[in-house]
Measured scan of single mutants.
Amino acid sequence: NRLGIIYEIQGMKAVVLTSEGEFLIIRRRKDMKVGQQVSFENEDIYNV
């Protein structure tokens, strides 16, 4: 599992900021809110 803070939500995608200072786009889940810490898997990351 990886951890990140939700920075922005766009439709079915969420932008998270990881503890390494990396911004990633992941698959959104219904319970996500901006500012929330979430765990996610590598499979949830969109390749940009």
Rank of each mutant, 00 (worst) to 15 (best):
N1T: 11
N1Y: 13
N1W: 08
N1M: 13
R2T: 06
L3G: 13
L3V: 13
L3D: 10
G4Y: 02
G4C: 04
G4S: 02
G4N: 02
G4R: 00
G4I: 01
G4H: 01
G4Q: 01
I5D: 02
I6W: 00
I6G: 00
I6D: 00
Y7G: 01
Y7C: 14
Y7E: 04
Y7P: 00
Y7D: 02
Y7I: 15
Y7L: 15
E8Q: 12
E8A: 13
E8K: 07
E8F: 06
E8N: 08
E8C: 03
E8L: 10
I9F: 15
Q10N: 13
Q10F: 11
Q10A: 07
G11W: 07
G11R: 07
G11N: 10
M12R: 14
M12L: 04
M12A: 10
K13Y: 13
K13D: 04
K13G: 06
K13W: 13
K13P: 00
A14S: 04
A14Q: 01
A14V: 10
A14R: 00
A14G: 01
A14Y: 08
A14T: 06
V15M: 14
V15F: 07
V15E: 02
V16W: 00
V16Y: 00
V16T: 01
V16K: 00
V16I: 08
L17W: 14
L17G: 03
T18H: 02
T18L: 05
S19N: 14
S19E: 10
S19L: 10
E20R: 08
G21V: 02
E22T: 11
E22Y: 10
E22V: 12
E22W: 10
E22I: 12
E22H: 09
F23Q: 05
F23T: 09
F23P: 02
F23C: 12
F23S: 09
L24T: 07
L24N: 02
L24V: 14
L24W: 09
L24E: 03
I25A: 09
I25E: 06
I25W: 08
I25G: 04
I26L: 04
I26D: 00
I26K: 00
R27Y: 08
R27L: 09
R28I: 14
R28S: 15
R28G: 14
R28F: 15
R29S: 09
R29N: 12
R29E: 12
K30G: 15
K30D: 13
K30R: 10
K30T: 10
D31K: 09
D31L: 03
D31A: 08
D31I: 03
M32W: 13
M32P: 01
M32C: 03
M32I: 03
K33A: 11
K33D: 08
K33V: 14
V34R: 04
V34H: 04
V34E: 07
V34G: 02
V34A: 05
V34I: 12
V34F: 04
V34M: 10
G35W: 04
G35T: 03
G35A: 05
G35V: 00
Q36K: 05
Q36S: 13
Q36L: 04
Q36C: 13
Q37M: 15
Q37W: 10
Q37I: 10
Q37A: 11
V38S: 02
V38I: 04
V38K: 01
V38P: 00
V38N: 00
S39E: 15
S39M: 08
S39H: 15
S39P: 08
F40I: 06
F40M: 11
E41V: 06
E41M: 13
E41A: 13
E41K: 14
E41G: 13
E41N: 08
N42L: 11
N42P: 06
E43C: 11
E43M: 04
E43K: 10
E43T: 04
D44N: 03
D44H: 04
D44M: 03
D44K: 03
D44Y: 06
D44A: 03
I45W: 06
I45Q: 04
Y46R: 07
Y46C: 12
Y46W: 11
Y46H: 09
Y46D: 11
N47R: 03
N47Q: 08
N47D: 11
V48N: 15
V48K: 02
V48F: 03
V48W: 04
